[in-house]
C-alpha cells in the first residue's frame, strides 16, 4: 500500500513488509491457505464488503484530501487488490492509510537548520496570498521566544503596504527589521539584511519576498539573484529556503513546489492555513516527487499560531 516507498528506501535492500496490512497478510497467509477462507473476516462483527461502491467511496475520501488522482488511484487499487470481496470497515482502511502516511512523512527532519557560525539566513518564498508575511511573523516570534536574536528583511517591495505589514509584526514581536523604499530592488534589501545580521551578530535573519507565480520566469530569476547576494554576505546563506504553501491549494501546489525548488532551491515547506477545512493532502505527492520536508504548519492569524509539523496529527486529520 505504500505507493511512495521508493524515495525513502535504499533500492538494494529488500523492503520488509512494513505496512500493517502487509504484515497481517504475511502472518495469516498460512492459515488462510489451510482454511481457504480469510480468517480476518471471522472476527468481523460488522463491516462492508469491498466492492465497487466501497472503492469509490474510498477514492472520494482520498481525493478530498487534495492528494491528487495519481496517489489516490494507487491507494484505491492497492486496497482493491488486497481486500476485494472481503468485509472490512472503511474507517479501518483509512486509519491504515493515515498510518502509512505518517510513516512516510516521519522520515524527514522538520528542524530548522542552524548555521555553525554567523547568522542563519532564512529566505521565505511562495505564490501571492499563500501567507508568507504572516508565516514569517509567526516564525520570527517563535525564534524570538526561544531566545534568538531575530532580524527581519522586508523583501516584498512590490505589494502595496507589505513592508508596513511586516513592520507592524516586527513591532509586536519586538524584533529588528530592515526595510527599503517601495519598489526598491528586493535583492538590495536582502543584501542589507544579511549584512546587518552578520555585522550585528544576529542569530537568525528571515527575509520576506514578494509573492510570485512560479510561471513568471523573470520574477523567479529575481529569487536566484537574492540567493546569490545573501550568499556573498554570509557563508552558506540562505541556509533555509522555506516555501509557503496554502493548505487550501489544490494540485497547482505541485507545480509551485517544482517551480520554486528549481529556481530558489527550497529546503522545506510551511503549510499555511491548515486551520480551515482544507486538508493539505497535496504535500503527499510533493513529498514523493521533491522530497521537501514540511517544517511548520500555520494554524491561524495570531503570532502563536505556528506549530512544528507533526506527521502523526497531520495524517490523522487527513480523513
Amino acid at each position: 500500500m505504500a505507493f511512495w516507498k521508493g524515495k525513502s528506501q535504499a533500492p538494494d535492500e529488500d523492503p520488509p513488509p512494513t505496512s500493517l496490512l502487509a504484515r497481517m497478510r504475511t502472518g495469516l497467509r498460512k492459515t488462510r491457505d489451510v482454511l481457504n477462507t480469510d480468517i480476518r473476516d471471522l472476527f468481523k462483527s460488522e463491516g462492508r464488503l469491498v466492492d465497487d461502491p466501497f472503492l469509490e467511496e474510498l477514492f472520494a475520501r482520498l481525493i478530498r484530501t487534495d492528494m491528487g488522482v495519481g496517489p489516490a488511484t494507487t491507494l484505491r487499487d492497492q486496497v482493491a487488490e488486497e481486500f476485494r470481496g472481503r468485509v472490512v470497515k472503511l474507517e479501518e482502511v483509512l486509519t491504515n492509510i493515515s498510518r502509512q502516511t505518517e510513516k512516510m512523512l516521519s522520515g524527514q527532519s522538520n528542524a530548522l537548520f542552524e548555521a555553525p557560525s554567523g547568522p542563519t539566513v532564512i529566505l521565505v518564498v511562495g505564490v501571492n496570498g499563500s501567507g508568507k508575511t504572516t508565516s514569517i511573523a509567526k516564525l520570527a516570534n517563535n525564534l524570538h521566544r526561544s531566545g534568538k536574536r531575530v532580524l527581519l528583511g522586508a523583501g516584498d517591495t512590490f505589494r502595496a503596504a507589505a513592508v508596513e505589514q511586516l513592520t507592524v509584526w516586527a513591532g509586536r514581536i519586538g524584533c529588528e527589521i530592515v526595510t527599503g523604499p517601495p519598489d526598491a530592488d528586493p535583492a538590495s534589501v536582502a543584501f542589507r539584511t544579511a549584512q546587518r545580521a552578520a555585522d550585528e551578530k544576529f542569530d537568525v535573519a528571515v527575509i520576506d519576498t514578494a509573492g510570485r507565480l512560479q510561471t513568471q520566469t523573470h520574477l523567479m530569476q529575481q529569487l536566484d539573484k537574492i540567493r546569490r547576494v545573501v550568499g556573498k554576505q554570509v557563508e552558506g546563506a540562505p541556509h533555509e529556503v522555506l516555501l509557503v504553501l496554502d493548505a487550501t491549494a489544490g494540485q497547482n501546489a505541485i507545480s509551485q513546489a517544482r517551480g520554486f525548488s528549481e529556481v530558489a532551491g527550497c529546503t522545506g515547506i510551511i503549510l499555511a492555513k491548515l486551520d480551515g477545512s482544507a486538508k493539505g493532502g497535496v504535500i503527499l505527492p510533493i513529498h514523493q516527487q521533491f522530497d521537501l520536508p514540511v517544517k511548520f504548519i500555520g494554524l491561524g492569524e495570531g503570532l502563536d499560531d505556528l506549530a512544528p509539523f507533526d506527521p502523526k496529527s497531520f495524517a490523522e486529520a487527513l480523513f
Binding site: D66, V127, D246, T248, G250, A253, S255, G276
Partner: peptide, 30 residues
Amino acid sequence: MTGQDAVNSAGAFNEALELNGVIMTKLDGD
C-alpha cells in the same frame, strides 16, 4: 489555485451571505 475545499468554503460563504457573483483570481499562472 484552490483545491477540493472550494465546495466547503464557497458553500459556507453562500449560506452566510447572499452572493451575487464570483471573481476568480491568480489565473495568470498555470
